[in-house]
Design a protein around this nucleic acid. Sequence first.
DNA 1: GTCTATACAGCGATAGAC
DNA 2: GTCTATCGCTGTATAGAC
Lengths: 198, 198
Amino acid sequence: MNRAQSGSADTAGQILDAAERLVQVNGFNGFSYADVAAELSLTTAALHYHFSGKAALGRALIDRYAARFGAALERIDREQPTAPEKLRAYATLYGEVLREDRMCLCGMLAAEYQTLPEPMQEAVIGFFDANETWLAWVLKSGVEAGLLSFTGPAEDTARMLVGALEGAMLIARPYRDVARFQATAQQLLATLAARPAG
Amino acid sequence: MNRAQSGSADTAGQILDAAERLVQVNGFNGFSYADVAAELSLTTAALHYHFSGKAALGRALIDRYAARFGAALERIDREQPTAPEKLRAYATLYGEVLREDRMCLCGMLAAEYQTLPEPMQEAVIGFFDANETWLAWVLKSGVEAGLLSFTGPAEDTARMLVGALEGAMLIARPYRDVARFQATAQQLLATLAARPAG
DNA sequence: GTCTATACAGCGATAGAC
DNA sequence: GTCTATCGCTGTATAGAC
């Protein structure tokens, strides 16, 4: 199980694995069917058997990525009891992606958004919406438990967190410096910690 | 003066204006010499007279953008007396770019970093370094004046700010929602405000 | 399910006329 | 300083054999 992260066995899965890595590193406009085919020692014609075109492949990429991310969030909910711990685990998800010299798939696609086919645009928005919804829920529960504190609606802080983490990845990657990301993540989370009541 | 922002008169400047907009919207891998030529009713051959190739054009793009940004920072230093006001003006710079449905040029190029020719990579890093240096200086002066407060080195908070603002732009653009960016910016700045001594 | 072969559009770039 | 014309390459995609 969870083969998606360690490499898929079937051809369609292998195509998705290779394409995913290529998009996360080079962008959707920076990779080609030929790149994927070469990596799997296939021809581009074989790729077209599994995915009708680049747009369909791209959409499948986001759908699988979003599903995997959703599963990771459920796992965090199960394993991390408190809101601050959930947030820390959430930031760690980003850090793990960055450690492989990748950008978040949807962060990369957000940059290229204007050039994407509409089915992909739709799925990118869905990814961010899901993240913000989950984060807002965590933030609210953290406030109720007296473990987090911030001003304004939880939704705003959720959006701030998604944006800040994506941006920290975006900038850290050219520097090839994961510590740069970690420092920002830690700083953001510290900001949300509830100060002892006085 | 400052013709760069309102449209250049000479051909080279017009090419830079058109290419800049195209890169900020579609990315470096999402625009072509043909796009720029069409927009100016020129041929791609004419473009090659002014810029030897796409790499040279890209480098010139960043250099001009960075110079303009540097000038904007100097202007902020002149016109905004206090650190919090400087930071607010800094965030406004980002907001103005976003209002034109553009991504920060170097934020966009950071996403495409791995596919960029080396002279462009170098210039992108230089842009972020300059921003962080300026921000760190502003943050330090704000702390000394008792107007800002944060924990850890000013350099870390400077990096956090650049990343968070770039990320907020990145995400706000697909939603075509400038308010989404403004909310994050405001939240970040509020975080840095010095709490009245008690 | 994968191949060979190929079509066709787009790309960056150059030569040489004007 | 801009044009026409063209080259070589890469891109996505398809037809049809195996």
